[in-house]
Amino acid sequence: MASLALTLEFGGGMELLFGNVKTHKVTLPAHLANDRPTNIKALIGWIRDNLLQGKPELFISDGTVRPGILVLINDTDWELEGELDYELKDRDTIVFISTLHGG
């Protein structure tokens, strides 16, 4: 497979870091680095480098999403799917929702 078509969704305020756009349809190379399958860890780096318009520290911490961001892979909590090691598949939907709210 030469590429992966993904839907990336940002909610709970996360969209503010991405140009106020909640849904991004993207196409990624199937292998981002070192001939390894594209996984969530590689995707997070790609998002940082290609989509993020706000402060990176509000999205990423220590190579993963920062605490307080819920990640869903095809409507399933990423903890049940292997988190950073989940191998992306064509037409996956990845959702990032901030659970932290100012007051």
Rank of each mutant, 00 (worst) to 15 (best):
M1P: 15
A2C: 09
A2P: 15
S3P: 04
S3R: 11
S3W: 08
S3F: 13
L4F: 08
L4R: 09
A5G: 02
A5M: 01
L6D: 07
T7S: 10
T7W: 03
L8H: 11
L8N: 09
E9F: 04
E9N: 11
E9Q: 15
F10A: 07
F10M: 07
G12D: 11
G12N: 08
G12E: 08
G13F: 02
E15A: 02
L17N: 06
F18A: 03
N20A: 01
V21E: 03
V21G: 00
V21H: 01
K22L: 01
K22V: 10
T23I: 12
H24C: 01
H24V: 03
K25E: 08
V26E: 03
T27S: 13
P29W: 00
P29Y: 03
P29F: 04
A30Y: 04
H31T: 14
H31S: 13
H31W: 00
H31N: 10
L32H: 12
A33S: 14
A33K: 14
N34M: 05
N34L: 10
N34K: 12
N34T: 05
D35M: 09
D35Q: 14
R36K: 14
N39G: 02
I40Q: 05
A42K: 01
A42P: 00
L43Q: 05
W46F: 02
W46D: 00
I47C: 04
R48E: 14
R48Y: 01
D49P: 00
N50L: 03
N50R: 09
N50I: 03
L52W: 03
L52S: 06
L52H: 08
Q53S: 06
Q53R: 15
Q53V: 02
G54V: 04
K55P: 03
P56M: 11
P56K: 14
F59A: 10
I60Y: 01
D62P: 02
D62K: 15
D62T: 09
G63W: 06
T64N: 13
T64W: 09
V65M: 09
V65H: 06
V65Y: 06
R66V: 12
R66H: 11
R66W: 04
P67T: 13
G68E: 09
G68C: 10
I69Y: 06
L70S: 11
L70N: 13
L70W: 08
V71S: 08
I73T: 10
I73N: 10
N74M: 09
T76D: 15
T76P: 03
D77E: 14
D77I: 09
D77N: 15
W78C: 05
W78R: 03
E79P: 01
L80D: 12
E81V: 07
G82A: 07
G82K: 00
G82F: 07
G82D: 09
E83P: 00
E83G: 00
L84W: 00
L84S: 10
Y86D: 10
Y86H: 10
Y86V: 04
E87G: 02
L88A: 09
L88C: 05
K89V: 07
K89Q: 15
K89M: 10
D90P: 02
R91C: 00
R91M: 02
R91Y: 06
T93Y: 04
I94V: 15
V95Y: 13
F96G: 05
I97G: 01
I97P: 01
S98H: 03
T99P: 01
T99V: 11
T99M: 13
L100T: 09
H101Y: 05
G103M: 03
